[in-house]
Design a protein around this nucleic acid. Structure first.
Lengths: 184, 184
DNA sequence: TTGACATGGGACATAGGTGTATCAAAACCG
DNA sequence: CGGTTTTGATACACCTATGTCCCATGTCAA
């Protein structure tokens, strides 16, 4: 017995519309999302009990995509790891635009905060490793490096989302800028 | 006849509290702001007719401070101009944290959008000028340069606001990172 | 001191968003 | 086809934030 086609159709429509809507307006109402998904408001609530549940589901989706994308780069070290991250994550620009905008509404969710904290920790470890390899200037504080990495990504995502740059071009510029900026 | 001391006292308390409150939570309610200012909600509305008016007033204040800070650097060109901007604007980190967070609530205000558009235009002109002087790599698109400039600032502001970096240290790192990143 | 004025607190109407319940119509699966 | 399930629309109660109004209280300036 197959799953009713209407269910999957509604759900994918909702997820896509919610993502797009919440990127442009992180505090968009459920009714706006329903309209964008071309779905009744009641149906929206049938699929996601509350607004909170919907948002968490979207964030979890994005995080899963990230971890899938990053699968198999554990063996890379230092600069090569950084470059792989730029390449692999740049196509997910819109997902990160969404996460960045919605984050303040999610800061009370222990699960998500914990995952984010883990990422930050991994990042700091990678920075230290790269410093040891001499690919990043040891005199620059790691906090600054991490902050610059994040903000370089953000800059690239904005230009990708707005269509000014392709993901691959953006990744190239981001890598160049980041390493030139942090090497010397 | 002097202006009633109570008026100025309330107003400064409101402005300061509103700024601080809206930095941490850009969608804070008027009641929260009133409590933070240690002022009755009614008094808050006596000074600022609506929430919209309050926010616009705060943004205008920040913009004025910016233009005052930048007064007298028109004669500087290229890299020197960029460095002056970093130095002069870094102490205003909290103001920019506020502006960045509140901006989506202000995008319908023609006045503010116009001012912001003017700044962007000036920025692009400065980038082109600096490229001509050979202080920025001509092969990097100006859009990317501007985006990196903005995001470098944002990174620095976050670290300054969180107390991890002093404004002067932040400005130093930001200048170093930005020019190393964009020169080669 | 005194008249004018700002304030705090509370009551109030309004608007908009959230989440629930119901029902007839439509689409699906077998 | 026929029973089941999903759907859209609507009505509903609830809550929260906004903005207005009023009045007793306390403070200011002349």
């Amino acid at each position: 017995m197959k799953r009713d086609q209407r269910l999957v159709q509604s759900e994918t429509a909702i997820v896509e519309a919610a993502l797009k809507t919440l990127i442009t307006n992180p505090s968009a109402a459920m009714s706006e999302i329903a309209i964008a998904a071309d779905v009744g408001r009641a149906t929206l609530y049938r699929h996601f009990e509350t607004r909170e549940v919907l948002i968490k589901a979207l964030v979890v989706d994005c995080m899963k995509e990230t971890e899938i994308a990053l699968k198999g780069i554990e063996h890379l070290k230092g600069r090569a790891a950084f470059e792989a991250i730029f390449d692999l994550l740049m196509p997910l620009a819109d997902r990160y635009q969404f996460m960045a905008g919605i984050w303040s509404q999610v800061q009370n969710d222990k699960d998500l905060v914990k995952i984010e904290a883990g990422w930050k920790k991994d990042m700091q470890a990678l920075v230290k490793q790269t410093k040891k390899r001499g690919e990043i200037n040891r005199d620059i504080p790691s906090e600054w490096i991490v902050a610059v990495f994040d903000s370089t990504f953000a800059a690239a995502w904005v230009l990708v989302s707005s269509g000014d740059l392709s993901p691959s071009d953006a990744a190239r510029y981001a890598k160049q800028t980041f390493f030139s900026g942090c090497a010397g």
